[in-house]
Design a protein around this nucleic acid. Structure first.
Length: 765
DNA sequence: AAAAAGTGGCTTTTT
DNA sequence: GCCACTTTTT
């Protein structure tokens, strides 16, 4: 209570906290910005602050709202708060933005276009609907990729713009066409009574524009907390503004250096401008790091110092954990060898510390494959996070489509899926008839019933469709009668889906049955939590990769995005190569590059004791052998980070201070433009063939082997060539042979092209 | 209509 | 290299 500050040595909620942490915990009223550096005990501070509000300020748990980005983070937060307080914390609203919005829309949903019994479309459903839309608009998929269109639409939605509003912006003709698709896509969603992920935020934000609704929820949530504030997009930002307008008790926690979701519409300015939004805001910096040793932290600081988009006047992270080990870097000749080397290091580590927790981190999911192969070869168990998700497997999606159609009969996408799974003799023709028979504002099942009554279906289709329709009639009763898992079991039996898999009697079908059994136990678990069908469906489509991280796993493989918020004593970051990390698509713009750098910062700061980086000179990407160049981020590491200078190509390469005199590498990515930076790297690459590779170099020395060395006339990767049409360039890779021999060439004037040897008129240059 | 065989296209990152 | 999509065969 107000008055003399509690004695930190006696109050349990302040025990073992440093000064700024204590300040943050005790701050109750008014806007608060907590800049929480990596490993600064953020979660402890957040949970204790909530506990403080409840215990010391007498705040009712039901008037506290906390937003996170993953379900796992939400659950952890709730549990930890519960352990600190004496009253039940169940009434606290702790959830992801998306779950929060779902909850609101299910209460207030009669005011949105989709009502309250909507389904949530996952990306696959979205794509399926978008394809229909594009076909209807006669937009060729060649120019209008469904995925691309959806991305553009998602950008608009994240900025809270509906089609009509988006149209007011100055747009190129292509985007205008996409807006037509947006319009029709929204209508399609409405017909399906469906929301996509972005709609959840968009509709809720619209709802809160209504002063009455805003007052209602604004009054209710007296204390609002947003975690990972740097990752909020415009819609989330506005949502929070609406809710906080009444009480101004808004606490946001974040770290602009860990903003890595710009591609999903996150706007780093939200956190950079918080103090402008709330001039009375108190700002607290948590800079004491309790996770990593000094060398790791120094490396992180040096790397991130190259970014310009940062909070002004923020201090640097400190640690008391000692200098620790030097960061090491391994350059392997080839991707497979890189993976094998990492596995070997892990085995050595295991020998000394059998219980050591290790993570292998990478930029993109495809990089896990070689690691997995190498791990399997050594029989090392590992846990893979992300990749092909459980709920995206074919058989699981099939089963879900039944459940969704039971839950929401307007869902045509699900209808299309389950109507012929297992095969019931319904092809495109029959499906077209059914869809044509759907009455205005009716459901696909009604359409089917009409068709059957009219005797339009013959033979197998007629028999099977009769049974199919009956299934859904009986489902209503089943849904009441038995629990969730009972319903799932019933659907598996009655639909004949399980039977058809059993009949297949293949190894693959067996695996699918096992997956369905796993799904069944997921349903049973949700049932025991008292979830209803629609809530269960929400839960599984809003489940994130990061939710399945098992902290108990001894060896985890995951993307850096998935690793955010986690820590491991031993961390490997693989694939430290240009075009892999930083990713090829991100390096073109300064913002993209800065985000990649933040991603690297996140990767580094996951490590507690030892950080190991690795790269490969050569690797197969998309089936073709590619040469790689060192990631520019390697150069941004402190000079001593690389234990010894290494050779990459013909250059002597060392981090921190550029390379030996005369090299094309110089320091300072922060300064030069992207173009000059690229030019530098390109010229480095071009020099490769000019100098003969030194021999006796333990790391191999040679820049590369020819990708496919069989044709005597073939150009090796790295060869300078001239094309009549495109001028001079450097061979990056070759594929195919004989007539089909094709080179990938990076031309000096810009752009990579694939050119067939027999047409290209290529000559050595 | 369903299964098998062939072709092209392309991969960040995810709630 | 893999997967989604298309064409061919049954």
């Amino acid at each position: 209570m107000p008055g003399a500050p509690p004695d930190p040595s006696t109050h349990p909620l302040l025990r073992n906290l440093n000064a700024p942490q204590r300040e943050a915990v005790c701050h109750a009223h008014g806007p608060l910005l907590i800049l929480a550096g990596a490993g600064s005990g953020k979660t402890t501070v957040i949970t204790r602050r909530i506990a403080w509000l409840i215990e010391e300020e007498g705040v009712h748990p039901g008037s506290i709202l906390a937003m996170t980005f993953t379900n796992k983070a939400a659950e952890e937060m709730r549990e930890r708060v519960q352990r600190l307080v004496s009253v039940p914390a169940a009434q606290m609203w702790v959830s992801t933005f998306h779950s929060f919005c779902t909850r609101i829309l299910r209460r207030e949903g009669e005011r949105t276009p989709v009502g309250r019994d909507f389904v949530i479309f996952d990306p696959a459903d979205q794509k399926s609907l978008m394809k229909q839309v594009l076909a209807e608009l006669k937009l060729p998929e060649k120019q209008f990729h469904p995925k691309k269109a959806l991305e553009v639409i998602s950008d608009f939605k994240n900025r809270c713009l509906l089609p009509e509003e988006a149209r007011e912006e100055a747009l190129d003709p292509w985007t205008r066409k996409v807006l037509d698709a947006y319009d029709l896509y929204q209508k399609g969603l409405k017909n399906h009574r469906a929301c996509d992920f972005d709609d959840l935020l968009l509709y809720t934000e619209r709802l809160f524009r209504d002063p009455v609704v805003q007052a209602q929820y604004g009054e209710r949530f007296k204390f609002i907390l947003v975690d990972e504030y740097q990752d909020t997009n415009r819609a989330q930002y506005l949502l929070v503004q609406h809710l906080a307008r009444r009480h101004h008790n808004l606490c946001v926690v974040g770290d602009e250096d860990q903003s890595i979701y710009g591609w999903r519409g996150a706007d780093i300015r939200n956190i950079l401008d918080f103090q402008q939004d709330f001039p009375e805001a108190v700002r607290i910096e948590l800079l004491q790091n309790y996770r990593s040793t000094k060398k790791i932290l120094d490396a992180a600081s040096e790397v991130i110092a190259n970014n310009s988009q940062r909070v002004e006047g923020k201090g640097a992270l400190k640690t008391d954990l000692g200098d620790g080990e030097t960061i090491t870097f391994k350059l392997a000749d080839e991707g497979r060898l890189e993976a094998e080397w990492v596995v070997q290091r892990i085995q050595e580590l295991r020998y000394r510390e059998p219980e050591a927790k290790v993570a292998v981190l990478y930029r993109a999911n495809w990089q896990s494959r070689q690691m997995e192969e190498a791990l399997r070869a050594q029989n090392l168990p590992y846990r893979l996070v992300g990749g092909v998700k459980f709920y995206e497997r074919q058989e699981v999606k099939d089963l879900i489509s039944y459940l969704r159609l039971i839950s929401n009969p307007f869902d045509l996408v699900s209808f299309r899926r389950c109507v012929n799974a297992p095969t019931r003799g319904v092809g495109p023709t029959t499906l077209g008839k059914i869809e044509g028979a759907i009455p205005e504002g009716g459901t696909p099942l009604e359409g089917l019933a009409i068709l059957l009554r009219a005797g339009e279906l013959k033979g197998r289709a007629q028999r099977e469709m009769g049974k199919f329709l009956e299934l859904f009639h009986r489902a209503a009763a089943e849904r009441e009668g038995q629990g969730l898992s009972g319903l799932v079991k019933w659907v598996l039996q009655e639909s004949g889906y399980l039977q058809s898999l059993e009949d297949e009697a293949t190894l693959e079908a067996e695996g699918r049955i096992r997956n369905l059994e796993e799904f069944l136990s997921a349903a049973a678990e949700s049932e025991s939590l008292g979830l209803r069908l629609s809530e269960f469906l929400d839960r599984i489509t809003l489940a994130a990769d990061a939710d399945q991280v098992e902290e108990s796993a001894h060896l985890s493989l995951m993307t850096i995005h998935c690793a955010k918020g986690l820590e491991f004593p031993f961390v490997f970051v693989i694939g430290m190569e240009e075009d892999v990390f930083p990713n090829r698509n991100a390096r073109e713009t300064p913002e993209g590059l800065e985000e990649e750098r933040r991603l690297f910062y996140v990767a580094i700061t996951r490590a507690q004791r030892r950080l190991t980086l690795s790269a490969a000179r050569r690797r197969r990407i998309m089936g073709t052998e590619m040469l790689s160049m060192p990631s520019r981020f390697l150069r941004e590491l402190p000079a001593e980070a690389l234990t010894a200078p290494i050779r990459w190509g013909t250059e002597l390469y060392q981090s921190g201070e550029g390379v030996r005199p005369g090299s094309s590498f110089t320091r300072g990515a922060g300064g030069g433009s992207v173009a000059t930076e690229l030019q530098r790297i390109r010229s480095f690459f071009d020099r490769v063939k000019e100098v003969p590779a030194p021999s006796g170099e333990p790391d191999g020395g040679r820049f590369s082997e020819p990708a496919e060395a069989k044709d005597p006339a073939a150009f090796e990767a790295g060869t300078r060539v001239k094309s009549a049409r495109f001028g001079a360039g450097t061979v990056l890779a070759s594929s195919g042979r004989g007539e089909g021999l094709t080179y990938t060439i990076r031309f000096d004037q810009g752009g990579d092209r694939r050119i067939m040897a027999r047409f290209g008129g290529l000559e050595r240059f």
